[in-house]
Design a protein around this nucleic acid. Structure first.
Length: 291
DNA sequence: CCGGACTCCTGGTTGC
DNA sequence: TGCAACCAGGAGTCCG
């Protein structure tokens, strides 16, 4: 399940290969992968073919490649649960489960294929208009990303505003962490990891979480995301970026997620998995109690 | 404002 | 061994 670190690795990997490249052809192999696109496949193809890619950008789990001229449209990518963006040589064998294939011509690297591969088809691509952000002058995001909060690794993320909305809200803390309109980029895995690190129970009411503990939690969110990013950033091939979003989360340093039945790395008691919000929540019920 | 239920989807795992 | 049921969940929508 790609979350912020995995999506950022994809963004960074794509950047050198796509900036300045011209789209020479587009094939939509499965139209369901255009569910975020407002229009039929023909419209997607027509609006993308012949365009020049600018530098890829990201907010939370949304990735987009602006199209020249700047400030107009962008190719938006969301990886969903299982999406991958693979860079291939133009004559490479087709990747299984490729849903959209984009051929590009780069002034330095020549012809490349960008394959959008997605097993479960929760992800998608779209062409969308860029709009100005309300908080940073000159900054733009696609319209379908405009309702998402900045992510905690964004220099313009507003800590005080986030903490204030937590205090004002009447909900559980994990719900809040997963609410992309409050803080973006955090998914189920890194939510569990951050809560474990900060010793906070997933259902702790946000209004009763002390300012100090909320501050600690936000710091842990940043540490967890930053650590994952550092691990992922070293693992991709420089020439043909093959960023895996499916097995995508960087699993070698998980303390809570998927660790049910094992010992809590902090106190040794057993990590349990509970159903919450129609998904799994992994925690140490000794370290993480509602207070 | 809030939360629950539902939808999208399919490879891998579990259970009989 | 074979097949069906179940499971994973990001994000959007709808409803009470």
């Amino acid at each position: 399940m790609p979350e912020l670190p995995e999506v950022e690795v994809v963004r960074a990997g794509l950047e050198p290969a796509v900036v300045g490249a011209v789209v020479t052809s587009v094939a939509v192999l499965d139209e369901r992968s255009l569910k975020r696109h407002d229009g039929p496949a023909e419209d997607f193809i027509a609006r993308l073919t012949g365009r020049t890619f600018l530098a890829p950008r990201r907010r939370g789990k949304f990735l987009w490649i602006p199209l020249a001229p700047a400030g107009g449209e962008a190719l938006v990518v969301h990886l969903g649960m299982s999406g991958q963006v693979l860079l291939r040589a133009p004559d490479a064998a087709a990747d299984p489960l490729t849903r959209i294939r984009i051929e590009i011509a780069h002034p330095d690297h020549g012809l490349l294929r960008v394959a959008f591969v997605d097993q479960r088809i929760f992800g998608s691509m779209a062409i969308d208009q860029l709009v100005e952000t309300p908080d940073v002058a000159g900054d733009t995001v696609p319209t379908q990303v405009a309702h998402i909060a900045r992510d905690p690794l964004d220099p313009a993320f507003d800590d005080r505003r986030f903490l204030a909305s937590l205090a004002r809200r009447n909900t559980g803390i994990k719900r809040a962490l997963l609410d992309q309109t409050l803080i973006s980029g955090v998914g189920n895995i890194y939510a569990d990891e951050s809560l474990w690190a900060a010793r906070v129970h997933y259902d702790q009411p946000t209004s009763t979480l002390s300012r100090a503990r909320a501050t600690t939690l936000l710091a842990e969110v940043r540490l967890v995301l930053g650590r994952a990013l550092a691990e992922g950033g070293t693992s991709f091939d420089a020439q043909y970026v093959n960023v895996n979003g499916a097995s995508g989360y960087f699993s070698h340093s998980l303390n809570a997620y998927g660790q049910q039945g094992r010992g809590c790395p902090r106190c040794g008691r057993t990590i349990v998995r509970e159903r919450f919000m129609n998904r799994g929540s992994h925690l140490c019920t000794f370290c993480q109690r509602i207070r």
